[in-house]
Design a protein around this nucleic acid. Sequence first.
DNA 1: CCACTACTGAAACAGTCGTTTCAGTGGCAG
DNA 2: CTGCCACTGAAACGACTGTTTCAGTAGTGG
Lengths: 189, 189
Amino acid sequence: MTPDERPPSARREELLERAYRYALEHGLSELSLRPLAAAVGSSPRVLLFLFGSKDGLIRALLARARADETAALDRARNAGEAGDVGAALRTTWEWLAAPAHRPMLVLWLQAYARSLSEPDGPWAGFARQTVADWLDLLAARTGGDRAATDAVLGLAVLRGALLDLLATGDVARTTAAVEAYLRRVDGPS
Amino acid sequence: MTPDERPPSARREELLERAYRYALEHGLSELSLRPLAAAVGSSPRVLLFLFGSKDGLIRALLARARADETAALDRARNAGEAGDVGAALRTTWEWLAAPAHRPMLVLWLQAYARSLSEPDGPWAGFARQTVADWLDLLAARTGGDRAATDAVLGLAVLRGALLDLLATGDVARTTAAVEAYLRRVDGPS
DNA sequence: CCACTACTGAAACAGTCGTTTCAGTGGCAG
DNA sequence: CTGCCACTGAAACGACTGTTTCAGTAGTGG
């Protein structure tokens, strides 16, 4: 009998939220139960009981991180008029560049990288899914093939600038690059 | 007395090369000495002797990976005429999109992500350094401020498209996006 | 009161980790 | 032959890993 994870409960969600905040500070790669349990005021015994296994915990944390990402996705969806890819990109970049979101984005990149080198385990499919989510959003604003390519390119600009920003912390330089792109795609008018 | 790592020797470089190939298959995050030693036909004792510590080994592997990156950087430097950023980007993308380089690039992304969440340890500075290397190259081809921004943007396009490619494996779609960008930056002429 | 569910503490299990200790190899210079 | 040097094997050390066993506790509904 594989120990199943418990259905959502008050205690489970409280501990998940605290564990998520702990993961934002310490990263997911080196997470281990005993220090985590001590930090969130619990015990390894309880974490295993509520989440079934460490993999179950990681899956739950990844899902929690995806909830933050979905929030950003919705914000982009409601930005500007329908069909206005530029507005969606601009809004999303503002969100990405906000210093408060940096720990979450580092966590996101970690999960992305890990899911590439470990097709099995709780990380599986994270990268593929996150790409698909964003492309769906951006492509839904468009019609033809050329516009689909624009969505792929726009997403690449955001993600590449984000990589740069996370490494250097240089908001001004990376924002200038994103805006240079938007100026070209919107037309110089 | 901290156990120092030995100077380069025939045996050291041979084992480093084998360990590098092992890391390309299994990733760096979960690397541990005993399985690695078994795979490369050695023992933990010898790896510690030659590299001083596990951190020393990782530093050596990271440096080895950087050697591959430097090769790509030189290829970009020699592409097209001086001042032709587009040619450098195009050449680099061909290199990035080659299936043979994929394991190395996944490894690169792993190191990048890890160096963001762990400022100390052997990973330190990897992300910042790799960004700086490429920006130096691309910016050296240019003069004014606008061109510097173009370099940042061009690099972002490559890295963003690479993230997409590594997750989805879709060479055609990501290459189309990169070329759409190059067409705009070179001008429609 | 009683049974039931949800949760918890303490301790132990078997395994892996990086590293160290001790004791050697084989080869090559003097 | 002697001494030095690069390298190696076997075994152990203590710390840490996820997980399990056993034994509870608090609260709630019948």
